[in-house]
Design a protein around this nucleic acid. Structure first.
Length: 730
DNA sequence: AGCCACTTTGTA
DNA sequence: ACAAAGTGGCTG
């Protein structure tokens, strides 16, 4: 007997499945994709549940089943899990897994982005000007992303498109996959590489083709410096998965999904993999989806959205460069693809491999606690070692006022250049000076919207807020007392360092690299190329230089102020700083010659600095965990963020007080904030974060959900996203 | 009031 | 997603 009522989840921002009557003669199963009426129109949805009941009521009817193949239980469970974990509406989570054929005889509808045309709006409003300011750099962004970044709602963007201020652009597609050959001839692995590959293969849950025991799955951290052959090693696990007839997914941060990587894959397997990323659209997208669903495509290499492909027999998930921030999705459903990969792996009973040269702190902790296996590659293939890192104690260096390069570092740069090698001076601060004040009256230039100082950008002759993007002309006279030429720049930014470097090394070629690089992405890429080819002696850069482009001639990294960020009040400051500095210093000596790093600091004994110098990440998190305990901060993997959508920013601010006074936290749970406001919302970029400490295993999401429901309802949608690893909730 | 731009709500 | 209803500023 057929069920009378189907609960259908619709891929819209709805948190509950809607109930429909099942018409006589339609035999539905859970997971079936169906067409249903919704309001005045017809939509698709997925049968999330079936039950018997009095169907004769006022329910509308399911129109039809529209696909032969339904959504498999593990993928449905993933949708449920992600919705629950990220506190996103279930329907939104479903939408990620249901990128259906963009129905009808659709030709080439690739991903659509928008960018500024340069035309002025016919009508200017506060919301519009925010968008125009953000889009002014000419970069292409997704509609949602632009709306969120500008702090406006999507309607504004549409309005600006109609007005001709923004134009839509589509990205071009390429071609589909060939079957990979696991036994394609390839260069042999070294002994240690072979051992590591065996260790990964031993975790595969699919039984070996020739009989024998299967592995037990779980998560393995594959750790090894750049050049140690991580990719070749996990390729062996992929090859074995192919032999065993299960599918593999290799996740990469979007930027790393390059032709170069696909070429390496082709060299190993004699065929191009199916590549999946947001730019792939239309027929190609549909063919890959269908191939994956049918089990005909054994290997997919993709960006984070590949996580939701309907694999038939998923046996292996590899997350390459697992520490990459690009795995975080920040608009729509906020999730971390690395963590969701772990979850999917668990639900599918697939082995998971996390690969990185500089694993994230969360992953290190999980490995140290035995939740993840750990495979470490001893050193770089070819015997290269990590750069030697030393601290420069700034309390002992004699530096004139207004100068920031210590004599020790200056000498090292000169020495390096004399050998024909490059030096990188790293300072994580854009612009010329982080604070401008009037010498006459002491007035400090502050952002009208945020509580931050305006940063001087001498090149642009502007004062800029790095928080909200607000910019104003740098005045000639003090806005407060009117004194002319009284403004002083306090502290260094990269522009100022470049000035100092130019004065100290007048005959050297200096390049400044920062994310606000004038001339946009094209010119930036050209500059990076110049550096790589040796067309420059000294690079001055912000965190932009922490990753990406390889600079083979770079042998010295000087960190100008390692202490930046350590006192930022963000409970994750320490781990963020550690990771950033580890990546930056690791850039030295990637070529033939060995590298070294010098780190200017006023607190060489600080755990983060000490760990960086010793290269002992394990000690760092041990000490950091202890320090957090003393400070009453949550341990790693226990931070949650309450995020109020950008559109409701103003409203949220008005209700901040109310929110802050809401609800008594339940026992064992503590909401962190400044001491004077224990439940305060901490301002982040276009959002508010609320930090929650849990002393026991709790479900932070449902706690927050209750917490919000119990208090006075804040106006608008309050979405909550969790910034932790999911291990503790599995 | 009426208009406009934008936000919020509801869809079973 | 999309359409309908609501909000709040502005105008004359």
């Amino acid at each position: 007997m057929n069920a009378a009522i189907a609960d259908v989840l619709i891929p819209l921002a709805l948190d509950t499945a809607y109930s429909y009557a099942v018409p006589a003669g339609l035999d539905l199963a859970e997971g079936d994709v169906v067409q249903i009426p919704l309001g005045p129109r017809e939509t698709v949805g997925v049968v999330w549940g079936l039950r018997d009941g009095a169907a004769g009521s006022n329910l509308r009817k399911v129109t039809a089943r529209i696909a032969d193949e339904g959504m498999a239980p593990p993928l449905r469970r993933l949708v449920d899990w992600i919705a629950r974990y990220t506190l996103a509406p279930k329907g939104s989570a479903l939408a990620m897994a249901l990128r259906l054929p963009e129905d009808g005889p659709r030709t080439e509808t690739a991903k659509v982005g928008v960018r500024a045309t340069g035309a002025a709006p016919s009508r200017i409003t506060a919301a519009r000007s925010k968008v125009v300011a953000v889009a002014a750099d000419g970069a292409v962004r997704g509609k949602r992303a632009l709306a969120l970044e500008s702090g406006v709602s999507a309607g504004v963007i549409d309005g600006l498109i109609d007005d001709g201020v923004l134009e839509t652009v589509t990205l071009a597609p390429e071609r589909v996959a060939e079957p990979p050959d696991p036994d394609h001839p390839h260069p042999p692995l070294s002994g240690p590489q072979r051992t590591a590959a065996e260790a990964l293969i031993a975790t595969l849950t699919a039984p070996p083709a020739g009989g024998g025991p299967a592995g037990e799955g779980g998560v393995t951290l594959l750790e090894g410096v750049t050049g140690s052959g991580k990719t070749e090693i996990y390729f062996e696990a992929v090859a074995e998965a192919v032999r065993r007839g299960v599918q593999s997914l290799v996740l990469m941060p979007e930027i790393a999904l390059t032709a170069q990587f696909l070429d390496r894959f082709t060299a190993r397997f004699g065929a191009r993999p199916a590549a999946w990323h947001s730019g792939i659209g239309g027929r190609r997208r549909e063919r890959i989806r269908a191939g994956v669903l049918a089990g005909e495509i054994p290997v997919v290499v993709g960006a984070r959205s590949a996580l939701f492909l309907p694999f038939r027999h998923l046996g292996l998930v590899v997350v390459d460069e697992e520490h990459e921030a690009a795995y975080k999705q920040d608009d729509g459903v906020c999730y971390h693809a690395r963590d969701m990969a772990v979850v999917r792996g668990k639900l599918e009973n697939a082995a998971v491999v996390l690969a990185s040269a500089t694993p994230s702190i969360e992953t290190r902790v999980n490995a140290a606690r035995g939740r993840y296996r750990r495979v470490v590659l001893p050193e770089r293939f070819g015997g290269r070692r990590l750069p030697e890192i030393r601290a420069i104690d700034m309390r002992r260096e004699a530096i004139p006022r207004g100068r920031y390069l210590s004599p020790t570092l200056t000498a090292a740069v000169a020495e390096t250049n004399a050998r024909g090698e490059q030096a990188l001076l790293f300072l994580n601060r854009r612009g010329y000076a982080p604070l401008t004040l009037c010498r006459a009256c002491g007035h400090r230039y502050q952002c009208p919207n945020c509580s931050t100082w305006l940063v001087e950008h001498r090149f642009r002759r502007a004062l800029v807020c790095h928080h909200c993007g607000h910019a104003e002309r740098r005045p000639d006279a003090c806005a407060e007392c009117g004194t002319v030429d009284s403004l002083t720049a306090c502290g260094p930014g990269v522009e100022r360092i470049a000035e100092e470097v130019a004065a100290t090394f007048p005959d050297k070629r200096v390049i400044v690299l920062s994310s606000d690089f004038p001339g946009g992405a094209e010119r930036l890429r050209a500059e990076l190329q110049t550096v790589a080819e040796g067309g420059c002696d000294i690079v001055v850069g912000t965190q932009l230089v922490a990753k990406g482009h390889n600079f083979p001639l770079l042998t010295l990294v000087g960190v100008l102020d390692a202490d930046i960020g350590l006192a930022s009040g963000d409970p994750r400051a320490a781990e963020r700083t550690f990771q950033l500095l580890q990546q930056v210093t690791g850039r030295a000596g990637r070529g033939e010659k060995p590298g070294r790093a010098l780190v200017q600091t006023y607190q060489p004994e600080h755990p983060v600095i000490a760990a960086l110098i010793s290269g002992d990440a394990e000690r760092f998190y041990e000490e950091e965990t202890a320090a957090r305990e003393v400070a009453g901060l949550p341990p790693f993997g226990r931070l949650a963020a309450l995020i109020v959508s950008a559109a409701e920013r103003e409203a949220a601010e008005a209700h901040g007080q109310a929110l802050a006074r809401v609800a008594e936290p339940p026992p064992g749970v503590m909401v962190l904030g400044p001491a004077e406001a224990p439940l305060a919302l901490v301002r982040g970029r276009h959002r508010f974060r609320l930090l929650v400490k849990a002393e026991r295993e709790i479900d932070i999401q449902s706690y927050l959900r209750d917490w919000i429901a119990r208090g006075p309802k804040p106006r608008g949608n309050v979405r909550v996203a969790i910034d932790v690893d999911p291990q503790s909730f599995l």
